[in-house]
Write a protein that binds this DNA or RNA. Sequence first.
RNA 1: GCCUCGUUCGUCUAGGGGUUAGGACGCAUCCCUUUCACGGAUGAAACACGGGUUCGAUUCCCGUACGGGGUACCA
Length: 498
Amino acid sequence: MVRVRFAPSPTGTLHIGGVRTALYNYLLARKLGGQFILRIEDTDQTRYVPGAEEYIIEALRWTGLVPDEGVGFGGEYGPYRQSDRKAMYAEYAQQLIERGNAYYAFDTAEELDQQRSSTENFIYGSSTRMGLRNSLALSKAETETLLANGTPAVIRLKIDPGQSILINDLIRGEVVFQSDELDDKVLLKTDGMPTYHLANIVDDHLMKITHVIRGEEWLSSTAHHVLLYRGFGWEDTMPQFAHLPLIMKPEGNGKLSKRDGAKFGIPVFPLAWVSDDPEQNAPGFRENGFVPEAVVNFLALLGWHPEGEQEIFTMDELISAFSLEKISKGGARFDYEKAKWFNQKYIQAMDNVALANIIRPYAESKNYTATEDFLVKVAELMKERVTFVQDFTETGYYLFEKVRIYDADTVAKKWKPEVKPVFSELTSVIEQCSDFSAAALEETVKTFIHDKALKPGDILPLLRIALAGTMKGPAVFDMAAMLGKTETVERLRLFENV
RNA sequence: GCCUCGUUCGUCUAGGGGUUAGGACGCAUCCCUUUCACGGAUGAAACACGGGUUCGAUUCCCGUACGGGGUACCA
């Protein structure tokens, strides 16, 4: 049984790379009929941000990556929040000490800083630990006294020199580390909380995780994790590792960071983050007008590509096509233009009724009165010309209200003195139409143009400007039919009098 | 610095010892349409470099360069 987990830290928003990690975990779980688990890694109490946990859950729901187990989703392996598991980590750390694979260390932060600045390439390990303040260097009596006095102590992993640690990464293949280069990582902090390394191994073991799919930033600490599994005697059930390439900045060097949203004017979060501190607030894909399916599709293909040349995938298609082996090794640059293209494609392909439901809240927020039928019609006429969901009511505002400004260039070019009376006449003709369908209108107007010995180009642009104010948009007769006779004639008269 | 991972069009990528190196986004031109978009067609655009191995390397190996990540009582 495959069991995977997404284990974010609730330090604020989830960034888009985190969503992709969740997605790949989810896809693998669904593909292999396993479980997808949400675990909250809040072992750093100083970095806890209120609301972050709720944000993470909402983001997963929005993208459709709903966990089978985890914080907020139940399950038999809980609790799924690490702060709620605090007591058990101390017990496991203790167990490691008893097995001779960990030890107490009493060095203060200042002492360690000093070591790092005075010794080049200092590592807290087999070559240095006997000169430091820990239970390996101190006598048993000294150690017991220090502990009895309540001296702040951490528990460190004891790494023996001379070992090669081989990791068989599902994406990268074999990666080897030498234990001499590894430091004796802190496992349990002075506040009694575990570090990521300890909590991660204990939880993955207890939660029966089979595959650890996480960002590449974890690759270099994986050797420590393997040693921890060995230390506990759990190596035979150790999960398999898959380290994902990172998502890079759209321009320049480095991985995509939370600050890049503001810097490049693009969303880097699934949902907007709104907090007490306006400095921290940032827009999200949802608020910028993306549909979740498009975001998922875009993210799925950022660093992964199945056989074939298909680009548009439903979630089910992603699930059946997914495999870890097809994940790229190199980092992928975040391409906002491509994200926009996916969104446009999804909107285009969407059912008009479904789109009407998406448009409705935008229309309501602008106090537009629009019936279901009207919104469906808006969807039909506009969906081939929008990129974002708010474009229906923004660039297509003229479908909901009177024209705000008339395109000056077109007016200057087409609104000639001699056509003005003809235009009035046409308005009257339109007013007389009994059949206000697009086809009938077109027939009427074209006959009129023909009878007046005019060209379509003399009249049609003016009709468009009168109705929409711009030379962009749906077919004129479709718009007129949708607006109805009263509104159409009103707009034509309004335009004549400008 | 040390450890570690990577490198095919501007971007996301396919491919893989012998290919006209394929697709997508973006860009350009044209067609459709007397609007815009959609759609269609066409085009410009890539195997980082140097050594091997080989009859033959973009593909395999080794270096170099460049880039990423790690190097905390953060995750």
